[in-house]
């Protein structure tokens, strides 16, 4: 498919989304219900990942560095 502009491409993408999810055949109010639920779920996923993923990554880093990293280089050296 060749598109003249971005707008046309987005319209085509939305059409594919309608067809694949099957909401192409629904009535407009049903479409809007589906869209609002679907997109709010996606928005929530994105928001939660924005909020919590950095925390989890930091915790994970600390945990793994606790296991593999930050050990003294040699216990023998300490005794001396």
């Amino acid at each position: 498919m060749n598109f003249k502009n971005m707008r046309e491409y987005l319209a085509w993408l939305y059409y594919q989304y309608l067809l694949i999810t099957g909401i192409y055949v629904l009535e407009p109010w049903e479409k809007s219900i589906f869209n609002s639920i679907f997109f709010s779920a996606i928005a929530m996923v994105i928001y939660t990942s924005y909020v919590f993923v950095p925390i989890h990554v930091r915790l994970a880093l600390e945990f793994f560095s606790g296991i593999f990293g930050s050990q003294p280089e040699s216990t023998v050296a300490l005794m001396n």
Partner: peptide
């Protein structure tokens, strides 16, 4: 998989 998903969505709206 997408076909089954589509039928699933339509079935939910059918129940609604």
């Amino acid at each position: 998989v997408l076909t089954y998903m589509g039928y699933g969505i339509l079935t939910i709206f059918g129940y609604l």
